[in-house]
Lab assay of single mutants.
Amino acid sequence: MVQRGSKVRILRPESYWFQDVGTVASVDQSGIKYPVIVRFEKVNYSGINTNNFAEDELVEVEA
């Protein structure tokens, strides 16, 4: 279970941040499909630095 402030590695192959490390900004408990919002240092092609992920697409590298 990841929690706010954890450092996580992204396992979603189609993601711009695949294999990159980001910080968990928040975790939604309402039961949505992609409840974990992760914030990154670098921006993607659209200038965005956050994205939603499912918990099984993340691996915690640092608490």
Score class of each variant (00 low, 15 high):
49 N>Y: 10
43 V>F: 15
11 L>R: 04
33 K>W: 05
54 A>E: 06
44 N>Y: 06
9 R>G: 04
38 V>L: 00
61 V>Y: 06
54 A>H: 07
37 I>N: 11
19 Q>P: 02
30 S>H: 07
29 Q>S: 12
26 S>H: 14
9 R>W: 03
37 I>G: 04
37 I>M: 15
30 S>N: 08
58 L>S: 01
47 G>C: 10
26 S>R: 11
51 N>V: 10
14 E>M: 08
1 M>L: 11
50 T>H: 10
15 S>C: 09
25 A>H: 11
57 E>M: 03
60 E>V: 15
24 V>E: 01
15 S>F: 05
26 S>Q: 10
60 E>K: 10
6 S>H: 07
3 Q>I: 10
31 G>R: 08
21 V>P: 01
49 N>F: 09
63 A>P: 13
28 D>L: 13
28 D>H: 06
31 G>Y: 09
57 E>S: 03
41 E>R: 09
46 S>Y: 14
16 Y>H: 05
6 S>F: 05
20 D>I: 10
29 Q>K: 13
9 R>P: 01
34 Y>R: 08
20 D>T: 09
19 Q>C: 14
6 S>I: 08
54 A>C: 08
33 K>G: 07
58 L>I: 12
62 E>M: 11
42 K>Q: 09
30 S>Y: 06
19 Q>D: 10
26 S>K: 10
21 V>C: 08
62 E>G: 11
56 D>Q: 07
20 D>S: 10
9 R>H: 03
24 V>A: 02
40 F>W: 00
44 N>K: 06
32 I>N: 10
10 I>N: 02
57 E>A: 03
11 L>H: 03
1 M>I: 11
22 G>N: 03
54 A>G: 08
33 K>C: 10
22 G>Q: 05
25 A>N: 06
49 N>C: 14
60 E>M: 14
48 I>G: 08
28 D>M: 12
5 G>T: 03
11 L>K: 04
46 S>L: 15
41 E>H: 08
56 D>R: 07
13 P>L: 09
10 I>L: 05
52 N>H: 10
14 E>D: 14
51 N>K: 05
18 F>N: 01
2 V>M: 11
8 V>W: 00
34 Y>Q: 06
31 G>S: 08
44 N>W: 09
60 E>Y: 10
48 I>V: 13
42 K>V: 07
23 T>N: 04
13 P>T: 11
52 N>S: 14
59 V>G: 07
40 F>S: 00
29 Q>N: 12
10 I>K: 02
44 N>T: 07
13 P>R: 13
55 E>Y: 15
17 W>K: 01
47 G>T: 01
47 G>K: 04
5 G>I: 01
51 N>E: 15
43 V>C: 14
21 V>Y: 06
48 I>L: 13
32 I>V: 13
7 K>C: 13
62 E>L: 10
57 E>Y: 04
54 A>R: 12
41 E>K: 08
39 R>E: 12
21 V>I: 13
51 N>G: 15
59 V>S: 08
42 K>L: 07
47 G>V: 02
36 V>S: 00
56 D>V: 07
61 V>H: 03
53 F>A: 00
32 I>M: 10
25 A>M: 15
36 V>W: 08
3 Q>A: 10
53 F>C: 05
6 S>A: 13
40 F>C: 03
39 R>A: 09
9 R>M: 09
17 W>Q: 00
23 T>W: 09
22 G>W: 08
17 W>M: 02
39 R>N: 08
25 A>E: 15
16 Y>L: 02
32 I>C: 12
27 V>Y: 10
43 V>G: 08
16 Y>E: 07
11 L>V: 05
30 S>R: 09
44 N>G: 05
53 F>R: 00
54 A>M: 08
2 V>W: 12
36 V>C: 05
29 Q>Y: 14
35 P>K: 11
5 G>R: 06
55 E>Q: 13
60 E>P: 13
38 V>H: 00
16 Y>R: 02
42 K>I: 08
61 V>I: 11
43 V>T: 12
7 K>P: 01
29 Q>V: 11
31 G>W: 08
36 V>A: 02
38 V>Y: 00
56 D>K: 06
34 Y>D: 03
7 K>M: 10
52 N>R: 12
2 V>D: 04
10 I>F: 04
20 D>H: 12
1 M>S: 13
43 V>E: 11
40 F>K: 00
26 S>M: 12
55 E>L: 15
35 P>V: 12
45 Y>F: 13
55 E>C: 14
14 E>A: 10
28 D>K: 05
41 E>D: 12
36 V>D: 00
36 V>L: 04
